[in-house]
Each structure stands twice: as structure tokens, then as C-alpha cells.
Design a protein around this nucleic acid. Structure first.
Length: 421
RNA sequence: GGAGAGGUGUCUGAGUGGUUGAAAGAGCCGGUCUCGAAAACCGGUGUGCUCUUUAUGGGUAUCCAGGGUUCGAAUCCCUGCCUCUCCGCCA
């Protein structure tokens, strides 16, 4: 969430930022509640001070075996007033907090305006589409012919969007996961294996709750949520902690399955591996010093891009416009890999900075060296990478006229085979 | 699943209704000493909110969380969460 003091002092700036994201702003209501809250606080604190002072006097009287009944009687009214004001404050803070949790992060000045995909800026392009003299097939045809991904049986077992990987398909997945993790380790990330279910507090911390609950699978009996991304459990590792400045930056990588309900799409968008309810991903998460966070964003983008480069896949990098960013982000890059079989770009990584938006929700701070109050860290994360569309791109990019698939060289030591089919 | 014990500051750990924001020790910061370091000694050292004449300022809250009793709660009561020990079950 945003800093209430910042909202109080820069209401127009915040309203403008929210508008750029295409969201509705209720800043006036926030400011009204905030003013009300501070007024109530002042009034109750005067009374509480009186209570403390008089109680101490009563204590002294009792110790001296003197009569304290006058002072005690005097507190009756004060007690009632405190109770009443405390109730009002609790109500006010509940409303204010609910409101603050639904206010999106505002975009960084370097983020382009606009709401539509065409407003995203292509800032880099790497590699070339493969040169082939036959008609490339989409990955779902290749996968079916090679019998490495079984969509039908996935439907039988669970439902649409839950593919069954088989044989070299399963092995390719495992190879990619290991490759991604190893590369992250080389780049200084520490590997973690987080829980795959999280509680409501964690989901609120990263911004999935309160109002994006429909994106997640919920175990209602235990009030737990299946992780939609490792971002949620990994960023929550340091919830309610004060870190030492020397510890920063903290860099984690984690492989997890991801579960997303994502209702609504159809047709070519959800064909094959394009959009799934369960998929694998290696996620990179950073906790950094606020002064360095935008440099760290570029570093994170490079970490992710390097993976596509090593796989020799053609991709481009987009700087996302304000309206195409999520609720929590202040700046975001997307990496899209070229799908030659579908003749379209597929998003395989999303690299974002949240500034203190998440850390304020989660209360993650660091203590500056020497003197100084704790400050909120900045959090970032990026996919490094999401598997299914990378698999799709590999199958299509490396297909041969005979219907086989050449495994990218960098994966050989992980797969143990060089050709599928 | 059954029985018991317990959750105090960065850590260890006192404290069972009235100068307790909280003893003591450790750690950390500053200083003295030293060529320097260690040791020793001296001083300081939580966090949130809020007010103002923004200051080595005032108030308030905070001893797992949420309620309650009381003039007054770390201390008493209730609920929840978590940890530990024993038994049972188990990959």
C-alpha cells in the first residue's frame, strides 16, 4: 500500500498516478478518514493521559493506606469516554485500512502512459526467428505427435489447463527447472523451497488479497490459498522483520508449481501450453536498498534475458505502459519469446519493481548502518522463467521437417538426450 | 488424535495487579585507554502512531494475537494462533 503520509501530502500526484493505471480513485475518502482518525486520536490520548496520571495517584494513596474513593469515582466518566472513542477509532481504522489496501501502486515517472498493449514500448529485440523451409507446426501438434504432453488425459484427471507431461516431455521440464535454478545460483541468488499454500496474511502482503481472491484456488476448510506464483511465499519470508543493511540485497530463487484460476479466456489464447491452471516457474525475488532499487530492476531483467539468450530463443523486451501494469507494480518489463508455430509473441517473464508497496503491507524494513530509523526495503521480482511457453517456443523453434525436436545445446547435460523423437 | 508445559526487547532471561518500556547479562553504537587491536572502564541503545514553539520535546500504544475484569494488567479471565515434552499414528 501507499504511505498515508505521502497521500496526505501529495493527493493530486497520487490521484494522477491511479488514473494512469486506469483505476478508480477514492483518495478524497482516504483523506477524510485520515483527518477524522487523527482528531479522534488526539481526543482519546488526552483522556488516556488523565487515566494514567490518576491511576498512579490512586496507587500512591493505597500504598499510604489513604482513601482513594474520590479519585476512583472521578474515573467513571473518563472510562466511558475512552471506550467510546476507542470504538470509533477502531471502526475508522478498519475502514481506512480496507480502503488503503485497495489503492494501487502508482507508476514510476519513466513508465509510458496508455492503457492498451500497443502502448507498451519495445525496448530491445534479441536473436532472429529460425530460418526454415517448411511450414512450422504449433507446439500442441508437435507435442501430441511425439507423445510428450497429454492434454486429454490431463483433462480426465483434473480438467482443462492441467496437462500431463510424459517421457521426454517430463524430462525436458525437469531439465529446464534445473537449468534455470543453476543459472540463478551463478548470478548470486539463494535457492529456497517455500510452502505451496499460504495463509491470508501472506496473500494480502503481496497484494493478491483483498480483492483479487478469484485468481487463486482456495482451500476453504483451512483458509489456505494455493500459490499463484512463488512471489507470494518467498516475498513473505521476511514479513514483519527488520533486516540489517549489510544483508541487502537479499536475492532468492525458487522453483514452484503455480496455480491460477484465471477464468475468461478462450480460443487461441488458451490453446496448448499458452495458458494453464497449473504451470511451473522459477521465480527470482529481491529485497533491496531503496536507493538502488531501479538499478536492481535492470539487473533482474538481465538475469532473465540471459536465460533466453542461452537457449538461443528469439525474444523482445517490453516496457509496460501504466495501464497494462498490475495493481502492485510501479514499473514492469515483459519478456516475450517468439512462437514460430503460432506466429506470435508469448510472455515468458514479467519483471517488476514494487518500491515499498509490498514491504509496507508486509512491514519489511532494514536498519540503516549506524544511526537511523528503520526504513522499508524495496521488493522486486521476475520470472526466470515460466516453463510452459518456453517449452512451447523450444518445441516450435527447434522442430525439424521430420517432426523431431532438437534440444538446445545448453540443456544437453540436463536432459541426457539431444533429440526428441 | 490424547495429556501436559509455555509464548517478555536483537538474543539469553527476570518479573503474578500500582514510578515496569520493562531487572540482569550478551550484542550493537559512541567514548576513555592503546602505535593499533583485544581486555577493562564510562555512556548510549526497541518500535508504531500522534501533537507542537521539529526538539538530546510532549503524549499515547506496544511484553504472541483478539476480547474481558479493574481506578490501574506483562501480571487475573476467555478465545485463537504458535512452540516444546510425553503417548498414539505415520511417508
Amino acid at each position: 500500500m501507499l504511505d498515508i503520509k505521502f497521500i496526505r501530502e501529495h493527493p493530486e500526484l497520487v490521484k494522477d498516478g491511479i488514473r494512469k493505471k486506469g483505476a478508480e480513485d477514492n483518495i478524497d475518502e482516504v483523506i477524510k478518514l485520515d483527518a477524522q482518525r487523527r482528531d479522534l486520536l488526539q481526543r482519546v490520548e488526552v483522556l488516556k493521559n488523565k487515566r494514567n496520571v490518576v491511576s498512579e495517584e490512586i496507587g500512591k494513596l493505597k500504598r499510604d493506606k489513604k482513601d482513594a474513593s474520590v479519585s476512583i469515582a472521578q474515573m467513571d466518566e473518563v472510562k466511558i469516554q475512552i471506550k467510546s472513542l476507542d470504538d470509533q477509532i477502531a471502526e475508522n481504522e478498519k475502514n481506512l485500512n480496507q480502503l488503503l489496501l485497495t489503492i494501487p501502486n502508482i507508476p514510476h515517472p519513466s513508465v509510458p502512459g496508455g492503457r492498451m498493449p500497443v502502448d507498451n514500448q519495445e525496448i530491445a529485440k534479441w536473436g532472429e526467428p529460425p530460418v526454415i523451409d517448411f511450414k512450422p507446426k504449433p507446439h500442441w501438434e508437435i507435442a501430441q505427435e511425439l507423445d510428450i504432453i497429454d492434454f486429454e488425459r490431463g483433462v480426465k484427471i483434473t480438467g482443462a489447463g492441467f496437462p500431463l507431461y510424459k517421457g521426454k516431455g517430463a524430462q525436458l521440464q525437469r531439465a529446464l527447472i534445473n537449468f534455470f535454478l543453476d543459472e540463478a545460483l551463478k548470478r548470486g541468488y539463494k535457492e529456497v523451497q517455500p510452502p505451496l499454500m499460504v495463509n491470508a496474511e501472506s496473500a494480502t502482503g503481496t497484494g493478491q488479497l483483498p480483492d483479487k481472491e478469484d485468481l487463486m484456488y482456495v482451500a476453504t476448510k483451512d483458509d489456505l490459498y494455493l500459490v499463484p506464483t512463488a512471489e507470494v511465499p518467498v516475498t513473505n519470508i521476511h514479513r514483519n522483520e527488520i533486516l540489517k543493511e549489510d544483508q541487502l540485497p537479499i536475492k532468492y530463487c525458487a522453483y514452484t508449481p503455480c496455480f491460477r484460476r484465471e477464468a475468461g479466456s478462450y480460443g487461441k489464447d488458451v490453446r496448448g501450453l499458452n495458458r494453464l491452471h497449473q504451470f511451473d516457474k522459477v521465480e527470482l525475488v529481491k529485497f533491496v536498498h531503496p536507493g538502488l532499487s531501479y538499478n536492481e530492476l535492470e539487473g533482474l531483467r538481465e538475469d532473465a534475458e540471459l536465460l533466453l539468450q542461452k537457449l538461443s530463443l528469439h525474444y523482445h523486451t517490453l516496457l509496460m505502459c501504466a495501464g497494462d501494469m498490475g495493481f502492485t507494480q510501479s514499473k514492469k518489463y515483459d519478456l516475450e519469446v517468439w512462437s514460430i508455430g503460432q506466429q506470435r509473441w508469448l510472455e515468458v517473464s514479467s519483471i517488476s519493481i514494487f518500491e515499498a508497496f509490498q514491504s509496507r503491507r508486509m512491514n519489511i524494513r532494514f536498519r540503516p548502518r549506524g544511526e537511523g530509523k528503520p526504513e522499508f526495503v524495496h521488493t522486486l521480482n521476475g520470472s526466470g522463467l515460466a516453463l510452459p511457453r518456453v517449452v512451447a517456443a523450444i518445441l516450435e523453434h527447434y522442430q525439424t521437417p521430420e517432426g523431431k525436436v532438437i534440444v538446445p545445446k545448453v540443456l544437453h547435460k540436463y536432459t541426457g538426450f539431444e533429440v526428441i523423437g
